[in-house]
């Protein structure tokens, strides 16, 4: 199981500013290790973000997202105290769900 995500969610005016850092190797499948063997691809494939029980974002990612991906999103109409739930699934079927509260 991967390490927890770091989620920061703050209200700025009427918009919630959500930042998330996921802990993931994001191997591209292009890289070779010291012995010259190709390191198999291992990357996050899909991400969903729910705020206050509603799906606000769903996305797909390829191997070209940086290691330990950081994403920033903005959601209008959210309010302080709303729960932010972020989930990812990688190409090996590993997954992780973390939540935070908008402050």
């Amino acid at each position: 199981m991967a390490d927890p995500m770091k989620i920061r969610a703050q209200m700025k005016g009427d918009t919630a500013d959500i930042r998330v850092l996921m802990s993931h190797a994001m191997e591209t499948g292009q890289r070779k290790d010291n012995a010259g063997n190709t390191v198999p691809a291992h990357y996050i494939q899909s991400i969903t973000v729910d705020v206050g029980g509603k799906r606000v974002l769903q996305g797909q990612t390829g191997p070209a997202v940086s290691r330990n991906p950081v994403f920033g999103f903005k959601v209008k109409g959210a309010k302080a105290g709303d729960k932010v739930v972020i989930n990812w699934v990688d190409n090996k079927g590993d997954k992780r769900t973390d939540e935070a509260t908008i402050s």
């Binding site: 918009t15 930042r19 994001m26 591209t28 292009q30 991400i47 973000v49 705020v51 509603k54 799906r55 606000v56 974002l57 769903q58 996305g59 797909q60 990612t61 390829g62 191997p63 070209a64 997202v65 940086s66 991906p69 950081v70 994403f71 920033g72 999103f73 903005k74 959601v75 209008k76 109409g77 959210a78």
Partner: peptide
């Protein structure tokens, strides 16, 4: 999309329920 990457499409996100159509991320090039 990063033109010259081996797989050019990096991310695709769908927005709904008040999500502002903007995003920040870090990509490999």
């Amino acid at each position: 999309v990063v033109d010259k990457n081996p797989f050019p499409l990096t991310t695709a996100f769908d927005f709904a329920n008040g999500a502002v159509p903007e995003m920040a991320l870090r990509v490999k090039m």
